[in-house]
Amino acid sequence: MPTPVPPDPLTTSPGTTGLRVRLFAGLREAAGWDERLVSWNEAGTAASQDAGAGDVTPRSLWHQLQLGSVALPAGLRVAVNHAFAHPEQPLQPGDEVAFLPPISGG
């Protein structure tokens, strides 16, 4: 298991209406964390500074959390509330967003 990261301004207390962000496999290890709670206000502020319509999206979260460049890497997939989703899908408070490295099951 990765070493827990200290609280930072993006991390809110459980129960706050925000967004839960999850990472898996090599992506989790590269980032050094597996799960974060992001406040809706922080996500909205970051999204408004991003290019685009200003919606909070998986892509804006990716950029906000400094997981990589503005564009998501090829092969990386996104899930919202346990369903595959488009990186530009507008999010809602309370959503769980997961960034999924290339899948290799079976």
Partner: peptide
């Protein structure tokens, strides 16, 4: 194999490598 979220890490020679 392509649509269910599983990830494999191969361990060989004491090193783990995530398969892509």
């Amino acid at each position: 194999k392509h649509e269910a979220p599983f990830w494999k890490r191969e361990w060989s020679g004491g090193r783990g490598t995530w398969l892509t």
